[in-house]
Amino acid sequence: MTKEAREAIEDVVKDIVAAELRSERDQLTPTTHLMKDLGADSLDALNIALRLEEAFKIKIPDESIPNFLTIGDIVRGVREHQAQ
């Protein structure tokens, strides 16, 4: 995957996380941790997964959701599920 494609995904992921968690989009980096840095809980994680499924037209299996800890994790996860 090209750098541009990865950045495009990251842009959308940041939009979704910022909107769901009411956080400052500019502050989000690939290492931003949803729980530790942004105070998310498991319900937030489920809602973020729903928004990702809608935005990227993918299906995220339940067992993947607990692995979405950082922005970087989510971007990688989306790429994997897009490839499938």
């Binding site: 319900l43 489920l46 809602n47 729903l50």
Partner: peptide, 8 residues
Amino acid sequence: RRSAIAIP
């Protein structure tokens, strides 16, 4: 728009 917090 679906939601994980519909019940709570």
